[in-house]
């Protein structure tokens, strides 16, 4: 654990505390989430209380403190998606994978997140799975899309 994070920390000078957010972003990119251990590691490196780091990390929606599923589903709940029925889309995804927004399925396959807007409003309603966009989804197409991911296993 220690060595992995060390590689990230080495890229940023220890005295520049403004790099806190990029450091946390890099760690999350690498590990998928921010573990308690990694936050403590950062705290030692930047000589900053870990409470302050948690203060910053919990302020921003991007940071997670639990591991993600193998396939991370983001359901867009922006205005355009809302007007075109993203509530039903979210219901359908939740029903399909059996977890609520913010959770990871027990087999570690899917995790679900609600995002404010991914900026693909022209294709609403939109969901993104591991960064790949699926446009104009319907209850039927969701089933197909998710089954495709399941079949890849």
């Amino acid at each position: 654990m220690e060595t992995k994070i060390q590689g990230i920390l080495d890229r940023y000078p220890a005295e520049k505390t403004e790099n806190l957010i990029p450091i946390l972003q890099d760690i999350q990119d690498h590990d998928g989430f921010l573990s308690q251990e990694s936050v403590i590691e950062v705290s030692k490196y930047l000589k900053m209380p870990s409470s302050r780091i948690f203060g910053v990390a919990t302020f921003y929606n991007q940071f997670r403190f639990t591991p993600l599923g193998k396939y991370h589903i983001q359901v867009c709940r922006g205005t355009a998606c809302h007007v075109l029925g993203s509530v039903t889309v979210l219901d359908e995804v939740e029903k399909n994978i059996g977890v609520k927004a913010g959770q990871t399925s027990r087999d570690g396959m899917f995790s679900l997140e609600v995002v404010a807007c991914i900026g693909a409003c022209g294709l609403a309603p939109v969901i993104a799975i591991n960064g790949n966009f699926h446009a104009k989804v319907t209850c039927e197409s969701i089933k197909e899309i998710l089954d495709n991911y399941r079949n890849q296993e």
């Binding site: 922006g78 205005t79 355009a80 809302h82 404010a116 807007c117 900026g119 693909a120 022209g122």
Partner: peptide, 11 residues
């Protein structure tokens, strides 16, 4: 930081 949901001009 185009946060307004429903807008994507800046992107």
């Amino acid at each position: 930081d185009e946060g307004d949901p429903g807008a994507f001009m800046d992107r």
